[in-house]
């Protein structure tokens, strides 16, 4: 079953254009939504949450159109903007007592289990929580109202390596029984290498690729060669960097002749992102 289906989203702003954004997230999986700052991750997430009006396109959550069934579907979505804090001077229990009234399937027992598990003190103010604890509090809220789809906008930004690792482990635990799906945006590719099943890569408002993680990385090659080899390949490279030994560049596997003598390796997600960002610079 498809947990989230994004179809041909288009939205024009003054200085930015979301162009034909499409991808699907299957139930019970984690999808990493990657892209540089300003690539369109948050705008896409806002479209999913029906916070912006699309010029065209559709979003379906658990098979239903978000525009037509917004209130029902928001009961099933757990949502967290990593970088934004709400009512930070309020205590956890004050905030929870207000929030839980909005959800039909709220379960106090589940909530208190998560508070214990995440070592969250109800009497603490939001401001007194570390970044990692804030994300855990958000997860506790989402899971206590029975959310089937978690949409997390940069939940790992600002976390120390240990907190990040713990959070990624929690994400993996949550999807184990196949009921919960997670879409989380990040510009930190190491998060995704650890826990994502699928990768959707957005660049300058356009989806570059959306596929299974290994397949995604395997569809590119990082090439190292000399200047004369660069001249033969230049047109087919996504972008390249010159160095004292020659060049390093990224190419789509379909554009690369694997029988050639150029040294080719499978790039990391970070390298793919960097070379796509460099492509933008080359055309500016």
């Amino acid at each position: 079953m498809i947990a989230l289906e994004v179809k041909d989203l288009n939205k024009k702003f003054k200085n930015f254009h979301l162009k034909d954004v499409s991808f699907q997230l299957e139930k019970g999986y984690i999808m990493g939504f990657i892209g540089a700052n300003g690539a369109g991750k948050t705008t896409t997430i806002k479209s999913i949450m029906n916070m912006i009006h699309l010029d065209s396109g559709e979003v379906h959550v658990l098979g239903k159109n978000i525009v037509e069934h917004e209130l029902d579907l928001k009961q099933e979505i757990g949502f967290a903007f990593g970088s934004i804090d709400f009512y930070t001077r309020s205590k956890i229990k004050t905030l929870t007592n207000v929030i839980k009234k909005f959800y039909k399937n709220w379960e106090d027992e589940t909530y208190y289990n998560y508070l214990r598990r995440f070592k969250l003190d109800e009497d603490k103010k939001i401001n007194d929580l570390s970044m990692g604890m804030k994300v855990k509090y958000n997860l506790s809220l989402a899971l206590s109202h029975g959310a089937k789809l978690l949409i997390l906008d940069e939940p790992t930004s600002g976390l120390d390596p240990a907190a990040k690792d713990e959070l990624l482990d929690i994400f993996q635990e949550l999807v184990v029984d196949g009921q919960i799906s997670i879409l989380f945006s990040t510009h930190s590719t190491s998060d995704l290498e650890k826990c994502a099943d699928f990768i959707t890569f957005i660049d300058n408002g356009k989806i570059i690729d959306s596929s299974e993680k290994e397949e995604f990385m395997d569809s590119y090659r990082l090439l190292n060669g000399n200047e004369s080899q660069l001249n033969q390949l230049k047109e087919r490279l996504i972008s390249y960097k010159m160095n004292s030994f020659g060049f390093t560049g990224l190419i789509r596997l379909c554009d690369f002749d694997t029988s050639s003598d150029i040294k080719a390796t499978i790039p990391s997600l970070e390298e793919i992102m960097i070379y796509f960002a460099k492509k933008e610079e080359m055309y500016v």
């Binding site: 949450m49 916070m51 209130l71 029902d72 928001k74 009512y87 909005f102």
Partner: peptide, 14 residues
């Protein structure tokens, strides 16, 4: 200051 607008928009309300 408390980002009430985004906070409320994420909840199931019209």
């Amino acid at each position: 200051a408390q980002n009430d607008l985004v906070f409320t928009m994420t909840m199931p309300v019209s």
